[in-house]
Amino acid sequence: HTVDVQGVTYHFDNPEEARKFAEEMAKRLGLQVHVKDGRYKVE
């Protein structure tokens, strides 16, 4: 499970961890979480 944050890619084994990380980063950076091709993108 992959999370892209402003061009940096993070990998997680656990989909729940990936989702939480994406939401946390989006909140911290004031950005949105998009799901695209099964990847989380924070932009």
Rank of each mutant, 00 (worst) to 15 (best):
H1I: 11
H1C: 15
H1Q: 08
H1E: 05
H1V: 08
H1P: 09
T2W: 15
T2H: 15
T2I: 15
T2G: 07
T2K: 12
T2A: 14
V3I: 02
V3R: 00
D4L: 08
D4H: 07
D4M: 07
D4Q: 09
D4G: 04
V5R: 01
V5M: 05
V5W: 03
V5P: 00
V5I: 08
Q6E: 13
Q6L: 15
Q6Y: 11
Q6R: 09
Q6M: 14
G7H: 06
G7E: 06
G7Q: 05
G7W: 04
V8T: 12
V8A: 09
V8P: 01
V8Q: 12
T9G: 06
T9E: 14
T9N: 08
Y10D: 01
Y10Q: 04
H11G: 06
F12S: 00
F12W: 03
F12P: 00
F12G: 00
D13C: 14
D13S: 10
D13I: 09
D13T: 12
D13W: 08
D13R: 07
D13N: 11
N14I: 09
N14P: 02
N14M: 10
N14V: 09
N14R: 08
N14S: 14
N14L: 10
N14D: 13
P15T: 12
P15I: 09
E16I: 11
E16P: 05
E17W: 06
E17V: 09
E17I: 09
E17M: 12
A18Y: 00
A18M: 03
A18F: 00
A18W: 00
A18L: 02
A18G: 04
A18T: 03
R19P: 02
R19M: 10
R19I: 07
R19Q: 09
R19S: 07
K20W: 10
K20V: 12
K20S: 13
K20G: 10
F21W: 07
F21V: 03
F21K: 02
F21T: 02
F21M: 04
A22H: 00
A22Y: 00
A22G: 03
A22E: 00
A22R: 00
A22W: 01
A22N: 00
E23Q: 09
E23V: 12
E23I: 12
E23D: 09
E23R: 06
E23L: 11
E24M: 13
E24Y: 12
E24N: 09
E24G: 09
E24V: 09
E24I: 09
E24C: 14
E24S: 12
E24W: 10
M25R: 05
M25G: 02
M25F: 06
A26N: 01
A26I: 01
A26P: 00
A26W: 01
A26L: 01
K27G: 07
K27R: 13
K27C: 15
K27M: 11
R28H: 10
R28C: 15
R28W: 07
R28N: 08
R28D: 06
L29M: 07
L29H: 06
L29D: 03
L29G: 02
G30Y: 03
L31Y: 07
L31H: 04
L31G: 08
Q32V: 15
Q32D: 07
Q32P: 06
Q32H: 14
Q32L: 08
V33S: 03
V33Y: 05
V33F: 06
V33W: 06
V33N: 02
V33Q: 02
H34E: 07
H34R: 09
H34I: 14
H34W: 05
V35M: 12
V35W: 14
V35K: 07
V35G: 10
V35Q: 07
K36H: 13
K36E: 14
K36F: 05
K36D: 11
K36A: 09
K36P: 01
K36C: 13
D37F: 03
D37K: 05
D37A: 04
D37T: 02
D37Y: 02
G38L: 04
G38E: 05
G38V: 02
G38T: 04
G38N: 07
R39Q: 15
R39E: 14
R39K: 14
R39I: 15
R39Y: 13
R39V: 14
R39D: 15
Y40R: 05
Y40Q: 04
Y40E: 04
Y40I: 15
Y40H: 06
Y40F: 14
K41F: 15
K41L: 15
V42L: 08
V42K: 02
V42H: 03
V42C: 04
V42T: 03
E43M: 09
E43W: 06
E43F: 09
E43Q: 07
E43Y: 09
E43T: 10
